[in-house]
Simulated assay, not measured.
Amino acid sequence: MLEAELEQLEQRIQRLAAAYRQARLEARRAQQERDRMVALNSELRRRIEGIVERVRQLETEQDP
């Protein structure tokens, strides 16, 4: 009886440990994806600012 309970506890510990490792892996991947998106957002912002600046330059060149 005690041996069966110990076996069940061991299995539960193994499942919990596996779930914990999986959660950490998923959190790490989410952090990497967030970092990638932040970098992409910065690059897009930089490009948009360049386009806006160029449009402003063209507008001032056309004004008499």
Rank of each mutant, 00 (worst) to 15 (best):
Met1Lys: 13
Leu2Lys: 14
Glu3Thr: 13
Ala4Gly: 09
Glu5Trp: 10
Leu6Met: 12
Glu7Ala: 10
Glu7Arg: 14
Gln8Pro: 03
Gln8Glu: 13
Gln8Trp: 07
Gln8Thr: 10
Leu9Pro: 04
Arg12Ala: 10
Arg12Trp: 03
Arg12Ser: 10
Arg12Gly: 06
Ile13His: 00
Ile13Gln: 01
Ile13Pro: 01
Ile13Lys: 01
Gln14Asn: 03
Gln14Val: 07
Arg15Cys: 01
Leu16Trp: 00
Ala17Gln: 06
Ala17Arg: 00
Ala18His: 06
Ala18Met: 11
Ala18Arg: 11
Ala19Met: 00
Tyr20Thr: 04
Arg21Leu: 09
Gln22Lys: 01
Gln22Trp: 02
Gln22Phe: 07
Gln22Pro: 00
Ala23Met: 00
Ala23Leu: 04
Arg24Gly: 02
Arg24Asn: 01
Arg24Ser: 04
Arg24Glu: 01
Arg24Trp: 00
Leu25Thr: 03
Glu26Lys: 04
Glu26Gln: 02
Glu26Pro: 01
Ala27Cys: 05
Ala27Thr: 05
Ala27Pro: 02
Arg28Gln: 04
Arg29Lys: 05
Ala30Met: 00
Ala30Pro: 00
Gln31Gly: 04
Gln31Phe: 01
Gln32Arg: 04
Gln32Ala: 03
Gln32Asp: 08
Glu33Thr: 03
Asp35Met: 04
Asp35Trp: 06
Arg36Phe: 07
Met37His: 06
Val38Asn: 05
Ala39Cys: 07
Ser42Gly: 11
Glu43Thr: 05
Glu43Met: 08
Leu44Pro: 15
Leu44Asn: 07
Arg45His: 09
Arg45Trp: 11
Arg45Ser: 09
Arg47Phe: 10
Glu49Cys: 01
Gly50His: 11
Gly50Glu: 15
Val52Ala: 08
Val52Leu: 15
Val52Cys: 08
Glu53Ser: 11
Glu53Gln: 13
Glu53Ala: 08
Arg54Glu: 15
Arg54Thr: 15
Val55Arg: 10
Val55Ser: 02
Val55Thr: 15
Arg56Thr: 13
Gln57Tyr: 14
Gln57Asp: 14
Gln57Lys: 13
Gln57Met: 12
Gln57Val: 14
Gln57Asn: 12
Leu58Glu: 12
Leu58Gln: 11
Glu59Phe: 12
Glu59Ser: 08
Thr60Ile: 07
Thr60Cys: 10
Glu61Gly: 02
Glu61Met: 11
Glu61Lys: 14
Gln62Thr: 14
Asp63Lys: 15
Pro64Phe: 12
Pro64Trp: 12
